[in-house]
């Protein structure tokens, strides 16, 4: 069942001199089972939007239908607690949410809060650990001894163990080295392909968006600017420039080739495909 967002508005500190309208009427239908990227400049309302998805903040106006829940300005927190289990939200730099003495306890913290049985939690931890690239020897260690990248794996494991249907990730690869970032992204891809989880990704990294996502939602000034299939989207790099984001390298290369008079198949997004397009157009190598 898709996520339906209707006329969503959100105002911070309403009724004070610090009032700030972050969302100004957002209408979206987000399909499930896909990998969706939400992009936009800082302050465009991305973070505010994703915090609505698990009812961390309630709309000032409008409504959200997600996982069988209908959230309106009058929704009570008590009624939506289970929604937070179904929609796992991983914040930027999630390593800062670790607090338990051992990694095992920290990973178990979420499901325990949602009332999952201890045996089941144990079983899930065993399943999740290899997924995030950790092994059982870590379980009894303190999360504070780990390196930054490992802490992030533990924090993400703490959300995955809740077995969410929808996984919302705010810049999950920020600050990681390229190798770990890639591992992290392929983990999410596996979750999407194998466990059929919906992945919503807030990202500034266009290479990741092009490589891993199915659909793109562009936010600008508290509104949705466009929502498109990812390959369709990167045919119009000017939308990206409008929000001051550089297109991925391959798209830039394509543009340059086109400007120099080469005819390029608009659907080619890999070097091999580009080379294929160019074959025959290059008369000779000098």
């Amino acid at each position: 069942m898709p996520i339906e967002i209707k006329d969503l508005e959100y105002t911070y500190s309403q009724g004070t001199p610090f009032e700030h309208k972050a969302l100004k009427g957002v209408n979206l239908t987000i399909p499930t089972g896909k990998v969706i990227a939400i992009i936009g400049q800082t302050g465009s309302g991305k973070s505010t939007l994703v915090q609505h998805l698990n009812a961390l903040i309630k709309p000032t106006k409008g409504s959200i239908d997600i996982c069988g829940f209908h959230i309106t300005p009058d929704t009570k927190l008590k009624d939506v607690k289970i929604l937070r289990k179904k929609v796992g939200l991983v914040f930027q730099f999630p390593e800062y949410q670790l607090f338990e003495e051992t990694i095992e306890k920290d990973i178990a913290f979420g499901p325990k809060n949602f009332g999952v049985e201890p045996e089941e939690i144990q079983q899930r931890i065993q399943e999740i650990l290899p997924l995030v690239g950790l092994d059982a020897s870590y379980l009894q260690r303190s999360p504070f001894e780990l390196s930054g990248g490992q802490k992030r794996r533990v924090a993400i494991a703490g959300i995955l163990v809740q077995d969410p249907e929808i996984l919302v990730l705010d810049e999950p690869a920020a600050g990681l080295d390229p190798q770990s970032a890639q591992e992290m992204m392929s983990l999410f891809m596996r979750l999407n392909r194998q466990a059929n989880k919906t992945i919503i990704l807030v990202s500034h990294d266009m290479e990741h968006v092009l490589r891993y996502c199915d659909e793109v939602i562009v936010m600008k000034d508290g509104k949705v600017k466009t929502q498109m299939d990812v390959h369709e989207f990167f045919k119009y790099p000017d939308i990206l420039r409008e929000i001051d984001i550089n297109p991925p390298g391959i798209v830039q290369l394509k543009e340059m080739l086109q400007q120099n008079g080469f005819e390029i198949d608009p659907d080619s997004y890999s070097l091999d495909e580009l080379a294929q397009s160019l074959k025959g157009q290059v008369a000779s190598h000098e």
């Binding site: 927190l77 937070r84 939200l89 914040f91 800062y96 949410q97 913290f109 325990k112 809060n113």
Partner: peptide
Amino acid sequence: NRIMNAQASRGVDLEN
């Protein structure tokens, strides 16, 4: 605020 939101996403309920 950030940590509160992160923990709330893990089922922490500060009110009930």
